[in-house]
Nucleic acid binder design. Structure first.
Length: 645
RNA sequence: GGGCCCGUAGCCGAGUGGAUAAGGCGCCGGCCUCCGGAGCCGGAGAGCGGGGGUUCGAGUCCCUCCGGGCCCGCCA
């Protein structure tokens, strides 16, 4: 696999080197970086190195640039046609014929591999993503996690790494026990409808019923005390719960009311839930059977909803297995033997700040020295473990299998993720901690109300995908009535899934997203359908080219053509940098720009009917190369590119 | 109280210190005898939350203030 822009870059650098030598100038530590000038007419590559050199030598940038230009000999280069000195910059213009030929023939020759440059040293990488609690459906909030994680995994895989994708099943938390408890009260029924949504309904119902009970007790107390402000507060909260309860009733008639009835006579539901949770942690048979069964219902719903959009996992790792296997206990033992733990009221505490100080972790990881890393409770006074403690054992297990770990986890868990790395460092595994990355993203919120698992209120991934595919289907129906129903269906899925994925991938993960139906269902510019449409148009032209004439690359002299060539040539750079920076967004943005420029070219430049024939031939290959760059960039994000739509 | 993140036109948003700050939505005006109008062309609209600083050069780096969010649980 090769990088045409790199070939051009090398020739420019060679010319620069020779030029500097010609002027007997030393670069010393300066790296002559080449970048793209802001305006394509200014050339293909440029360098601002004269500014740095000038201030060092006490001379003017433009004077230096001109002098350098004077001693460079572009005629000695095949790819570089000319050099200019403009305002202190040195601009290199590629030879249109040679550079187009190199770029387009590389792209067309490498086809599905084009641009997807392989890493020099492939690594074994684990991407842990989604890991949603198994007590409710995948909604647009955790879907951001899934879609980011999946894109990262695919990008890394295309980069040549050996990637495994894992889902951490958080089955030891109280919420799962709560859902299981409700399921038992219902008489252990089989799921109806999407099973993760169904589990979510049970969980939210139990939660609401419990909360309402508690609030009603508080209401009586407040009334007795004549605390009217408090009474109003409680009433407001009760009406919120009533609204949520009604939503649940509408969604799954029967479930809420059956649970309401079943919980009527229960004295202490929280006690029962805690007991179930404790039994499960101890691995008692009945608790194990029931919790695992319920969790499995939920996970099968996850598998189905995510599988629908092409997101798959290599492994589902149960938190409980780490506890039962003794791995968690072992880690605690090892931490206990370090000087950093202490007992406090019966609980075992890790002094993260002390670890960080001793091992200089803040300097190492670029953390503000004023920030004091909070203590981490490893074991509760009652002897049970906590989430982060179990996660330490999980991390150790991960590094038995891979060299590098990427955890796609919400930003709000930053402290816990940091403490986790500190704990690894405390165990003497600083290098491992270095290679564990918290890939943080911010939450997706709903415009009016907040999504809430506890209230069973969310926009599920299923409904979003369903509506997007439905809308895409209508569009395909209208535009390509001649296709078979199967083809239409298949295309509608590519388009609908692409739209949903792109909407979440094209925004910086660290920005909060307010979920917006219009945005996801907008198939116009700046969307996957827009990019896919350009791809389909390119395919359409290529389909119609019967016997392509011999290309004359030298005829690709127009600005739009040259920009397209440059964009195609940039794809390997874009891909490589996006993977290094773990930035799917960079690829999304590239694909959109390429599609945009291609459409503009398409509107004003005939391809099949271009004259002379050599131009038609060259444009056809340009179209093919654009098609390849569009498809490969979408592939890297996990989005498919239909040939018709 | 401490720490982290975000703040770019009416709205959504891109922008690894470099040359005139992308796009999109919405708005105004054009384009279907011509390779797919999910499209194209043109127009109005911001100097990047405020203020300092570093630099030849700052939306990008530093300080400070303001607004919004998050974290500092023997929750996950």
């Amino acid at each position: 696999m090769s990088n045409p822009l790199d070939a051009l870059r090398e020739e420019c650098l060679r010319l620069l080197d020779e030029g500097l030598e010609g002027l007997s100038l030393e670069l010393e530590s300066l790296e002559p970086a080449l970048s793209r000038p802001p305006n394509p007419a200014m050339g293909d590559l440029s360098t601002s190195l004269c500014f740095k050199l000038a201030s060092r030598l006490g001379r003017s940038p433009q004077g230096l640039a001109e002098e350098l230009k004077g001693v460079m000999d572009p005629s000695s280069s095949r790819l570089v046609a000319s050099v200019e000195a403009v305002g202190g910059y040195i601009n290199f213009h590629a030879d249109p014929g040679e550079f187009s030929k190199l770029t387009l023939e590389t792209a067309v020759g490498e086809e599905g591999d084009y641009g997807l440059l392989k890493a020099e040293r492939p690594e074994r990488v684990m991407v842990e993503h989604t890991s949603a609690n198994p007590n409710g459906p995948i909604h647009v909030g955790n879907a951001r996690n899934s879609i980011l994680g999946d894109a990262l995994a695919k990008m890394l895989r295309y980069r040549g790494h050996r990637v495994v994708v894992h889902f951490y099943v958080d089955d030891m938390g109280r919420q799962v026990a709560m859902a299981t408890y409700g399921w038992r009260l219902l008489g252990r029924p089989e799921p109806e409808g999407p099973s993760d949504l169904w589990v979510g309904t049970i969980y939210a119902s139990v939660n609401i019923i419990k909360e309402v009970k508690r609030l009603k007790r508080e209401l009586e107390e407040a009334k007795a005390l004549e605390a009217y402000a408090r009474v109003r507060e409680i009433n407001a909260e009760l009406s919120r719960y009533a609204a949520a309860a009604q939503e649940l009733r509408d969604r799954a008639p029967g479930v809420f009311d059956a649970l309401l009835e079943a919980l009527e006579g229960v004295e202490d539901p929280d006690g029962e839930i805690s007991r179930l949770n404790a039994e499960y942690e101890r691995g008692e048979a009945e608790a194990k059977r029931d919790v695992r069964r319920l969790v499995e219902y939920c996970l099968s719903g996850f598998r189905e909803a995510l599988g629908e959009i092409g997101v798959h996992f290599d492994s589902w790792d149960y938190e409980s297995d780490l506890v039962w296997s003794g791995a968690v206990e072992e880690v605690i033992g090892r931490l206990r033997r370090t000087p950093y733990t202490r007992l406090e009221g019966g609980a075992l505490i890790l002094d993260c700040e002390a670890v960080a100080q001793d091992l200089k972790l803040k300097e190492r990881w670029g953390i503000n020295p004023r920030y004091e890393i909070p203590d981490l409770v490893l074991v509760r006074a009652d002897g049970t473990t906590l989430y982060t403690t179990r996660d330490i054992a999980y991390s150790l297990w991960k590094f038995d299998h891979v060299d590098r770990v990427i955890n796609v986890i919400g930003y709000e868990q930053s402290t816990a993720q940091l403490q986790l790395r500190v704990a690894l460092a405390a165990l003497g595994l600083v290098e491992i901690a270095d290679r564990q990355r918290h890939y943080a993203y911010k939450f997706v919120t709903l415009p009016g109300l907040k999504m809430s698992g506890r209230l069973g209120r969310y926009v599920t991934l299923r409904e979003v995908v369903e509506r997007a595919v439905e809308l895409a289907h209508k569009e395909v129906e209208a535009r390509s009535p001649g296709l078979s129903e199967g083809e239409k269906r298949r295309i509608a899925e590519m388009v609908g899934h692409g739209a949903v994925k792109y909407a979440l991938l094209s925004v910086d993960p660290m920005k909060t997203v307010v979920f917006d139906w219009d945005r996801v269902l907008d198939f116009e510019r700046n969307s996957a359908p827009f990019i896919q449409y350009s791809h389909a148009r390119a395919c359409s032209i290529l389909r119609k080219a019967e016997n392509p004439p011999q290309p004359d690359y030298g005829l690709l002299r127009d600005g739009k053509e040259r920009e397209l060539v440059h964009l195609v040539a940039s794809f390997p750079d874009v891909f490589q940098e996006a993977v290094e920076a773990l930035s799917p967004q960079a690829i999304a943005s590239y694909a959109n720009t390429l599609a945009d420029r291609f459409n503009s070219f398409y509107a004003s430049h005939p391809v099949l009917k271009a004259e002379p024939k050599g131009l038609a031939g060259a444009r056809l290959i340009l179209v093919d190369a654009v098609r390849i760059a569009l498809r490969n960039s979408l592939s890297a994000l996990g989005i498919e590119a239909p040939e018709r739509m």
